[in-house]
Design a protein around this nucleic acid. Structure first.
Length: 410
DNA sequence: TCTGGGGTCCTAGGACCC
DNA sequence: TCTGGGGTCCTAGGACCC
């Protein structure tokens, strides 16, 4: 590619000084994990996704050969690839495998920053004495993940996070690509603008209107022109990236900014009671995850998507932070009623908690008329029952299935 | 083609305070 | 009567990522 590469066989030499960042990215992760227990499906096009209104979550490379891509509506994927087998996701298993893969990475260095279940950044600058050059470390990781989990991954090695990320993408599947410090610009500049992290459809179109097609074009474009077209922050950001500059460091300790739960209904609904029950369920999920993490929220928001796919959000900042299911639900329900679109067909509802803080430092001031202790105790009892009997085993009576009028559903 | 669910970050406008 | 600038917080929407 640029003379800076090592192929899948891992034959590349790595004599550069500054290539301490690795980006490790599992190949077709969900599909590959599912195939571990279905070896007879190897070599066949397999798609992971589900539901009547689902999208493609993951697809084997055999399915991708038909044009199937992740996030594509399942209906379209089936048309593109009729022989594909569509299997439902098994999130619990993905999580388990992910935990073990991350543990392999933490054997190399504590400086591991997971980006999602199936990818992570590593800063290996302190690991060379023990494990060798960054390229040798990358080969070691790939060999261990394959030997211990039966899965392939691709690894990018570069002086900065975003170049390492692009490198792993360009080496997929089952590849390794090293971009030494001296080779960053010659690696980046021929690539299309969309290869940059943060350039999606809208930004690509805006860049295209400026006549910018490659990352090299962005590097040659005057900063003020870029900022006029994309805004201050985005313009400056892309300008820096196009010149290979990226100051971010691998941070293993970053904490969440928000926690949310949302659900697309299987059929659009304008039934206010049914939508309120969904808000109750989602509020409970969000609150439980807050308590699991020892966090409280001050800002509750709801998200509503109508049948025409238009999406609106409404937010409210509370007087006091909370992790109590009932308080989050009360705020969500008020926002829902105030939004004032009764009668319209709703496709999706969501609840989000933002403005988070640690529960310990939250010094709750009780108003005289408040009795939150009861609700809080109910949550704790529900949490304990969930741990014993399984999540969802105990919950509000209004979430119980409605009594069927006729026993036909049994 | 008919669009999931979990997130992050940025922008812009308004309220409010100094 | 007309006219500031800056800072912070909040809300709504949108782009983007996996």
């Amino acid at each position: 590619m640029t003379g800076a590469t090592a192929g899948p066989a891992g034959t590349g030499t790595d004599r550069s000084v500054g290539s301490p960042i690795l980006h490790v990215d599992m190949d077709a992760f969900f599909a590959s994990v599912t195939l571990l227990e279905r070896p007879e499906l190897r070599g066949r096009p397999v798609i992971i996704g589900g539901g009547t209104r689902g999208v493609v979550l993951s697809a084997t490379y055999e399915a991708r050969a038909f044009g199937v891509r992740s996030a594509m509506p399942l209906a379209r994927a089936r048309r593109l690839c009729p022989p594909a087998l569509v299997l439902p996701p098994e999130r619990h298993r993905y999580h388990e495998v992910s935990t073990r893969v991350m543990a392999i990475l933490r054997d190399i260095t504590p400086l591991v920053a997971p980006l999602s279940v199936d990818e992570a950044f590593l800063d290996v600058s302190g690991s060379r004495r023990l494990f060798g050059t960054p390229a040798e470390i990358a080969r070691l990781i790939r060999a261990r993940v394959l030997a211990e989990e039966g899965l392939t991954c691709s690894v990018g090695v570069a002086p900065t996070m975003f170049v390492a990320k692009i490198a792993s993408t360009r080496s997929k599947p089952d590849g390794l690509l090293v971009v030494p410090a001296g080779g960053v610009l010659s690696f980046l500049h021929p690539l299309p603008t969309s290869a940059l992290w943060g350039v999606g459809q809208a930004t690509e179109a805006a860049l295209d209107r400026l006549g910018l097609r490659t990352i090299g074009d962005i590097a040659d474009c005057p900063l003020p022109t870029l900022q006029r077209a994309l805004g201050q922050a985005a313009g400056a950001h892309l300008n820096a990236l196009a010149h290979g500059r990226d100051e971010r460091a691998v941070d293993p300790g970053s904490t969440e900014v928000s926690i949310s739960a949302e659900h697309t209904l299987s059929v659009d609904s304008s039934d206010q009671d049914a939508l309120a029950r969904e808000l109750l369920r989602l509020s409970g999920q969000v609150a439980r995850r807050l308590r699991d993490r020892g966090r409280v929220t001050r800002t509750v928001s709801i998200k509503i998507r109508l049948a025409d796919f238009s999406t609106l959000t409404r937010a409210r900042t509370l007087r006091e932070p909370t992790d109590v299911s009932q308080e989050i639900y009360r705020a969500a329900l008020e926002l829902f009623h105030e939004a004032g679109f009764a009668g319209k067909a709703v496709r999706l509802v969501g609840v989000r908690a933002a403005n988070l803080a640690d529960a310990g430092g939250a010094g709750h001031q009780l108003a005289f008329d408040e009795r939150p202790v009861g609700w809080s105790q109910l949550d704790r009892a529900t949490d304990a029952a969930g741990r014993r009997f399984g999540t969802g085993s105990v919950g509000p009576a209004s979430l119980l299935p409605r009594q069927p009028r006729r026993p036909e559903s049994i």
